[in-house]
Simulated scan of single mutants.
Amino acid sequence: MNPVVTTAPAPAVTRVELRPRYEGSNICTWIGFKHVNYLVEEAVLDHLRQRGLPAGRLYERHGICVDLSSIDTRMWTAYHIDDLAVATVRQLESEDHRLRFLVEMTAERETSVKTVTARVAVTLRQDPRGFPAEPAPVEVAANLVPRLGPSAEPTLPAGADPVAQLTKGHNAFAWSWRIPYPYCHFTERLQMSGYLRLMEEAVDLFLADRGVSIHTLLSEQNWIPVVPSSSVEMLAEVGMEEELITVFTVETVFKRLTYTARMDCYVRRDGVLVKTATGRITHGYAVIENRRDWRQVDFDDRLLTALRGNQR
């Protein structure tokens, strides 16, 4: 495609005000990690919009799909449902085809409170559906790729029971499911927000499998899991209605304070398992003190045993 020049202004740094979605206020008025990452995503999309490259126009006119392909987020302070989030987005240098951004966020309360730092990679994928398209804007023409992920997809031979195969000998939990269309975008492909939903579900299912479900600790001890950091990296494309195997593996337990787990996702194709994404999430635990405040607590013996792999 021959590039064309756009005349829209292109600020190097952008700023946008956002509000957390009501759906993300699951425990009291705190916003969960998934919806914090949704705010990061919205900030990056707004940055592109302010630079004259809105995702809708890139797709409709130029056949370019804007995919967040990597997101690595550190959460310093919890958001509450009525907070005003202010995000500053800067584009970073990149050594590959992807656009890379630094997102820094605050909550505007009595004073401005640092809440989030995130690094995001955006892949500009050519739409495969074959409709006519205008030439790509010159700013992004060199960044276009025909598929998401590295050129060589990581694979391993598929056994008869991939769930058992991927968890054997590991402190892990896995399940297999069919990708529904609400997790996808651009008509056919699992998107970043779908992986974030999967990571949230993986934590929930893992803890329930170990006898320390979120509801159990909430009802018995008034404890909730809290997330200081999370990341997801897309490695290969996966499509609507494919069977996805999600593996959640506890990697480290730091004293009695936090644990870090890895999420790996696979699809089975032609006798092999193709790894489509990987990510990590770190959890601590907090006790609810009142409707607004919580305080971090040490893991008790029951939780520590469950996390280390000895099921109740």
Rank of each mutant, 00 (worst) to 15 (best):
P3C: 04
P3T: 05
V5E: 15
T6S: 12
T6I: 14
T6K: 09
T6M: 12
A8K: 04
A10R: 15
R15L: 11
R15I: 12
V16P: 06
R19G: 07
E23T: 13
G24Q: 01
G24N: 02
S25I: 11
T29A: 12
I31Q: 00
K34D: 13
K34W: 10
N37D: 10
Y38H: 14
E41R: 10
E42M: 14
L45K: 13
R49I: 04
R49S: 07
Q50W: 06
R51D: 06
G52H: 02
R57E: 15
V66W: 01
L68V: 09
L68D: 03
S69T: 04
S70F: 14
W76M: 14
T77L: 11
T77V: 10
T77C: 12
A78Q: 10
Y79C: 10
Y79E: 08
D83T: 00
L84I: 14
A85G: 04
V86C: 11
V86W: 07
V89Y: 04
H97S: 15
L99E: 02
L102M: 12
V103P: 00
E104F: 08
M105L: 06
A107F: 08
R109N: 04
E110D: 14
S112Y: 05
V113I: 12
A121V: 05
A121Q: 06
T123L: 07
A133W: 08
E134V: 09
E139C: 06
E139H: 09
V140K: 00
N143V: 09
R147I: 09
G149I: 01
P150A: 15
E153L: 13
E153K: 13
P157R: 03
A158C: 06
G159R: 03
G159S: 01
D161F: 07
T167S: 04
F173G: 05
F173S: 07
W175F: 15
W177L: 12
I179K: 05
P180Q: 09
Y181K: 04
Y183C: 14
H185P: 07
E188F: 11
L190V: 03
Q191L: 10
M192H: 13
M192P: 02
M192T: 05
S193T: 11
G194E: 02
Y195F: 12
Y195K: 03
L198K: 06
E200Q: 06
D204W: 14
L205M: 13
H215M: 13
H215L: 14
S219H: 13
Q221Y: 14
N222W: 13
W223Q: 01
V226E: 03
V226D: 03
P228Y: 03
M234C: 13
A236R: 01
E237G: 10
G239H: 15
E242Q: 04
V253N: 02
T258A: 10
A261M: 01
R262E: 10
C265V: 07
R268H: 12
R268E: 11
G271S: 04
L273H: 00
V274M: 02
V274N: 01
K275C: 01
T282C: 05
G284T: 06
V287K: 15
V287F: 10
I288F: 08
R291S: 14
Q296H: 09
D298Y: 13
R302F: 07
L303S: 00
L304P: 06
A306D: 05
L307V: 00
L307Y: 05
R308H: 10
Q311H: 14
